[in-house]
Design a protein around this nucleic acid. Structure first.
Lengths: 110, 110
DNA sequence: TTATTTGATCGCAATAATACGATGAAGTGT
DNA sequence: ACACTTCATCGTATTATTGCGATCAAATAA
C-alpha cells in the first residue's frame, strides 16, 4: 500500500479494517473462543490449546491486545488473559454500526 | 508438536477468519460502505472513489465476491456490483453468533 | 545464591497480501 | 472492419504476516 494514499481512508474505515484484520486469523478466533468458553481468565495454557509454538501464540495474543479485544494481567510468574469487557462493548458497537449500514443497502439491485 | 494439541482449526473458525480477513482492509471497507451509501448498484466508478488503480480495485472486488459479501452482474460493457443480500444475511448471523459467544464470557476476571 | 518456570521479544526464513502497469477479453459505437 | 470502453487477469516488485528457535526478563522455588 502506498503510504501517501492511506490518508485517503476515513478514520473509522481504518479502525474497522484494523479490527477485522485482528480477527482475520483462525488462531486468534480460536484464542477468543477459548477465552469465552472457559468463562474465566486463562493463562499460558492457551498454548496447549493451539497447534502453535509459544512464541507464535504470544505474538497472536499481542495482536489481540493491541486492538483492545483482550487484556492480560500479570499474576506471579504467569499472565492471565481475558476478553476486555470494556473495550469489547465499544468494538461491538462499531461493528454493529457498520452492519446496520450494510443492512440499509441495495434492496432490489442487480 | 505436542500430541495433546489439536492440529487443525475448526471449520467455523476458518470461515470466520476468512470473512474477517476480507474485511481487514480499508479499501474493502470503503467499497462496501460506498455500495451501501448509493443504495443501488454501482459499476466501475468505484474506482473513482478510491485512491487505487483500476487493477487493484478489481482485485479487492474479487476478494469481496469470493467471500460472498458482494455480487457483480455484467451490464453491457460494465459490471454492476452490489452487496449480496442473500449471503449477507448468512454472514451476519455467523458474526452475531460469534459475538454472542464473546458476550457470554469473562464477567469478572483478571 | 542458583535453578526453574512463564511469557515476551528478537532474528530470520517462508509465505501471503498489496499495488500497479501491461495486456487480454468482451461489449459498444462508428 | 476499426476504435473505444470497461473490467479482469497476468507478471512482478514491494511490503506485511506468520511461525519458530533462541534468548531475555521477572517471579518463584530450591
Amino acid at each position: 500500500m502506498k503510504a501517501s494514499k492511506v490518508s485517503e481512508y476515513s478514520k473509522h474505515q481504518l479502525e474497522l479494517a484494523t479490527l477485522a484484520k485482528a480477527l482475520g486469523h483462525p488462531a486468534r478466533i480460536a484464542i477468543l473462543e477459548h477465552l469465552a468458553r472457559v468463562n474465566a481468565c486463562v493463562c499460558g495454557d492457551i498454548v496447549e490449546e493451539l497447534p502453535l509454538a509459544q512464541a507464535t501464540v504470544s505474538q497472536h495474543l499481542r495482536e489481540l491486545k493491541e486492538v483492545g479485544l483482550i487484556k492480560g494481567t500479570v499474576e506471579g510468574t504467569s499472565v492471565c488473559y481475558c476478553i476486555d469487557e470494556e473495550n469489547w462493548k465499544t468494538i461491538k458497537e462499531q461493528l454493529n454500526t457498520f452492519f446496520r449500514e450494510l443492512d440499509a443497502a441495495c434492496q432490489n439491485c442487480c
